[in-house]
Design a protein around this nucleic acid. Structure first.
Lengths: 342, 342
DNA sequence: CTGAAAGCGCTTACAG
DNA sequence: CTGAAAGCGCTTACAG
């Protein structure tokens, strides 16, 4: 940059006050009586010099970085297909920017989970949002023990780490109940991910619950695992299509995985929903443009991000949270991939 | 956090050296002769105390934040549909983490473009990557003039701001040439975005070039504007379908916009590619799962992110770039949304 | 209503 | 081969 950056000293000099006053005024510290006239002079001087406080100076003195880290445990391929993440991200960003926080993004492979702790141990961020927590992550537990503000997007069993999640289990149950209500008895399932992801286990539980309550026998041969990608859905559906008799409906716990499964069905010459009905999960923006448009469970992705950001920031600011975790509702979205009639 | 964070003083004390030496050793400063024995002691002390240098202290002293900002000019709705962004993001992240940089993400609405300059004027980041530059952004020019390291993902006319972009114009031309080569004479187009985005103008230019060189008259009634979303593609295609005679093929400069257009075509009872052929652009991960799978122009999204990150970091480190801008190649991907035969 | 001073935790010439 | 010292630009008790 040209010239020298103006510092708070320059502003103080120009306004004829101390640096203390400059800081007090510019940061809008409440409960300090500073005359209107003085405030005016400070603001004017700052404007005139085009002064912007240096982030690192502020950070060092205050101990706060005003930055939150969004950490995501996923491989690159998984990320590429994550239509959901963007909405969450925007939710986080919006609440963060409202509160004067910045968002740092970090993708981590499973292999080196400890890489993200660096963010926090170097005081680079004031706290982190961990998306897609694994059921067993010792590094995470260590950080939590040390008092690092952490917000889980998802859930972890046997911990008191605060979280924001969606009622995935009841969402799945609703989906499968709907399939049962329109007459299906043989219902397959493809998970959204490996079961070590909490979201995968929850969604599967909902499926099991619905069938069990309806006294329908669980058939393990109709349950396959996806792993976030369309390709995994394609493969899983190929497997399911080998079973006999075929299921009349398949609940796929991820819209993105579902698109691959749909292609497998079409390639085998079957029609949706005539020959086989499909139910998704997530309601990604594209789902209504699938052919046929996908019945699914809407996840409030933006709200999820917003809530996680909001609660993490409150934690950072030292507020006590009323609840350790909150669960957002899902919504049943019926489109043409399932039959309308009862 | 429990206890007090260990500082470099603690390490120095334990290792029996000065803070200078601690800093020199831990940062692997080249060209300083420090005995192996001393180095060992420092490393051991740091390990023992679980010492991690504080980012803000380092930042303040060195003047470098080791962070780059990724700024994206888009509305929320546009972001939600941006399948492309994630791949770019991962590319940027990977090169950044290799070089020890972090990535800060910021989405900005057109309305307040000056919001992103704050990142840089507060020294929060060492430089920024601006994705989706508008053709007229005075704030950007100001930052560039001040010497702020900026890397454009896309291009801006009449500036010498460094950029990384894709050969979009020739990519479009290739796509349309292909359509011409298989016999189409009446070819429509839907842009990916409003023409104030450089990428939109480039892609349209390629379309115009191809038609012109083939001596096909441009028919403005067959050219509609998209704006990143499937919904915009749906609407644009509805318009095109009102024209008579109908085009036999439509080039849609965005796969995401194309999915909406495809739905409009199906709703009108026409078949793809039998009645109308569709050519996309971007090759988003989902494109091969469209029905029919979409012929498109592949954008090297990851490479684009990687190159932008790499070059920005080199700029930040004070290296001279050989070229002010680089252009990556696209690739023709033929699938079933266009007829195979010549 | 406002200021002088200490301190946050590093890096980096400079000196020897 | 290593250290003493200054300085980066803020904030924040403390004092008056």
């Amino acid at each position: 940059m040209s010239a020298r950056r103006p510092t708070s000293v320059d502003v103080a000099l120009l306004a004829g006050v101390s640096r203390t006053t400059v800081s007090l005024v510019l940061n809008h510290i409440p409960k300090v009586n500073i005359s209107e006239a003085t405030r005016k002079r400070v603001f004017e001087a700052a404007r005139q010099l085009n002064y912007h406080p240096d982030a690192s100076g502020r950070k060092l003195a205050s101990g706060k970085s005003k930055t939150i880290g969004l950490v995501r445990l996923q491989s690159s391929e998984q990320v590429f297909n994550d239509a959901f993440l963007l909405q969450v991200l925007v939710g986080i960003e919006q609440v963060a920017s409202q509160r004067g926080f910045h968002v740092l993004l970090k993708h981590i492979n499973h292999s080196n989970t400890n890489e993200y702790s660096q963010l926090v141990t170097e005081n680079f961020v004031d706290g982190i949002i961990l998306s897609g927590p694994l059921q067993n992550d010792p590094e995470l537990m260590r950080l939590h023990q040390e008092g690092v503000p952490i917000m889980l997007l998802g859930q972890m069993a046997n911990t008191d780490i605060p979280f924001v999640d969606v009622k995935a289990e009841s969402g799945s149950e609703t989906a499968v109940n709907h399939l049962i209500s329109i007459g299906h008895k043989r219902i397959g399932m493809i998970t959204n991910a490996k079961l070590e992801y909490s979201s995968a286990q929850q969604r599967k539980n909902g499926y099991i619950n619905a069938l069990t309550k309806a006294n329908i026998q669980i058939d393990d041969r109709l349950i396959k695992e996806g792993d976030f990608t369309p390709a995994s859905g394609f493969l899983a559906m190929k497997e399911i299509l080998k079973s006999s008799p075929l299921p009349s409906a398949v609940f796929i716990a991820s819209d993105v995985v579902a698109i691959g499964a749909i292609q497998a069905i079409k390639q085998s010459g079957l029609r949706i929903p005539r020959d086989i009905e499909i139910f998704g999960f997530d309601d990604v923006p594209m789902a209504q443009y699938y052919d046929p448009p996908l019945s699914t469970i809407r996840l409030p992705a933006f709200d999820l991000g917003w809530a996680a950001g909001d609660r993490l920031i409150r934690l950072i600011l030292g507020e006590k949270l009323d609840l350790n975790g909150i669960l957002l509702d899902t919504e049943l979205i019926l489109r043409e991939s399932t039959s309308q009639a009862v």
